[in-house]
Amino acid sequence: MDCKRASELTMKYFDQTINDFEKKELDCHITACSTCRLDFQWMREALEGVEELEDFEAPENFEIEVLEQLDLKRYEPKPVPSKIQFWLALTVPCVFAILSIGFYIRFGTIDWKDGYTGAVSFMRVIDLGNRMYGLLGLTGKALGETFFVFIKALKYMSAFLNSRMGIYMTIVAFLCSILVFTQYVLIKLTDVFGYRGGRSYEK
């Protein structure tokens, strides 16, 4: 065996992939050849030295310093809108819209002075809501006269809308506005085409 082969086997030895036969082969050469023997010994010296090195002690307060730099809320679960919520948000307004059209076909548009009392009283509630919206709009206008007030209102509104109650209120307001808007459109259509739905009421 030549010295090149011995150096290959030395590497294999430190890779711990050497087999018994190769080990004997290497042993044989090392006993005979002093250069390879010294190489082997130095190599062992160096690598065992590395293996025996101890860990350094990390600086004091290391953990605290790292933790201070971390966003500890990074993995906190955030409410994710579920699929059910998504479909609910889609179907509920649709149902409301269809319901509005249904009301129109069944009861026709509303004559506020007189008429089919059940439907009328229901529509009156909605009308009241509509008026309230108008009032709210007026108040909003008055408030909005000052820029700072407007900004503040926005701030509070966003805080309100972000709250759970705010979200519910917004949904309700949204649904009501769909109802009111459909009624409004239908009444306008009546004015244009003269059809007053399934039943018409005298003014």
Partner: peptide
């Protein structure tokens, strides 16, 4: 799962 402080143990 959101318990960020536990990372201190890993450190």
């Amino acid at each position: 799962q959101g318990d960020g402080d536990k990372f201190g143990e890993i450190i």
